[in-house]
């Protein structure tokens, strides 16, 4: 009975696993192979295998672009955490209709295309946009914030804020109220209770949220391309131009592999961190 049940379960799982194998695993394996061809504009995809395409990533412009991408992602994660934590606290203390409305405000942006939201920021930040026109109407000098790193940072923060709020709120909601009462009963001040009990217990949510925001903002394309343009080129923008403008597929594939490995290392590290953390907390 149990064995036949397992066999049926395996069969039911097979189609979905096949999709992952054919549409994710195989294409990524193929990218590994393409990266081993000799790189160059309009690369013919013959010869090799060699590691020249990876070596090429060590030269300009890639290191500086990678650094900028990393900096933008880290800053986004910091901003999203600083803004998201108070919001998550407020959300987790809200009940009933207020909570439902807040959830709607947080979830709705996630269901809109990132292109539409980036477009909204273009309309706000452009020289002929809401900010520029308002300044002009007030006879102040027109300032355009479009095509700056600040614009990219602002839009990235806005687009990842909901994820961090939801991740932190999930952790906060899991805190047993008795624990807080016990801390207070043992004489801890409310500030002490907050920093010694509440903050450590939100760490799993923070680790999950932060790793997601980091990887997500490293991989973002629409926001840096529309709001930063040539003033804030990111790693993924380079990959796109390698494919569509210089037709240097080996270098594009190598850059993709580097990004994938880096993202996987980040996510793996986060998973390890939260596992060790929960082992220590619960003594398992």
């Amino acid at each position: 009975m149990d064995r036949s049940r397992r066999r049926v379960a395996g069969l039911l799982l097979l189609p979905a696993l096949l999709v992952v194998a054919v549409v994710a695993a195989a294409p990524i394996g193929l990218l590994f192979r393409v990266a081993l061809y000799p790189p160059g504009p309009v690369a013919p995809l013959t010869g090799g295998p060699e590691l020249d395409s990876f070596a090429g990533l060590l030269g300009a412009p890639y290191p500086s672009v990678a650094l900028r991408t990393l900096r933008l992602s880290l800053l986004t994660t910091v901003l999203v955490t600083l803004l998201g934590f108070p919001v998550a606290l407020f959300l987790s203390r809200s009940r009933g209709l207020s909570r439902r409305i807040q959830t709607l405000l947080i979830v709705s942006p996630l269901l809109m295309s990132v292109v539409v939201r980036a477009y909204g920021w273009m309309l706000i930040l452009g020289r002929q946009g809401f900010v520029g026109e308002t300044l002009a109407a007030l006879s102040l000098p027109r300032v355009g914030l479009l095509h700056t790193e600040a614009a990219v940072l602002l839009a990235l923060t806005e687009s990842f804020l909901p994820f961090m709020i939801l991740a932190l709120a999930a952790s906060l909601d899991r805190i047993d109220p008795d624990l807080l009462a016990a801390a207070r009963g043992l004489g801890a001040s409310s500030a002490r209770t907050f920093f010694a009990v509440v903050v450590p217990l939100t760490l799993p949510g923070f680790v999950a949220g932060a790793s997601f925001v980091l990887v997500g903002s490293l991989s973002a394309y629409a926001i840096p391309a529309l709001l930063g343009g040539s003033a804030a080129r990111t790693f993924v923008m380079e990959i796109y131009e390698l494919v569509t403008i210089s037709f240097d597929w080996p270098t594009a594939a190598a850059a993709s592999i580097v990004l994938l490995l880096f993202a996987s290392a980040l996510l793996g590290g986060a998973a390890l961190l939260s596992r060790r953390r929960s082992a220590r907390t619960f003594g398992t």
Binding site: A24, L31, V215, S219, Y221, I239, S256, L260
Partner: peptide, 20 residues
């Protein structure tokens, strides 16, 4: 495994599918 595609960079995945 089933959830892993959600954390892959979309553009990289697109490039993989295009190559395939």
């Amino acid at each position: 495994v089933l959830l892993s595609p959600l954390s892959l960079p979309g553009l990289v995945l697109g490039l993989g599918v295009l190559t395939s």
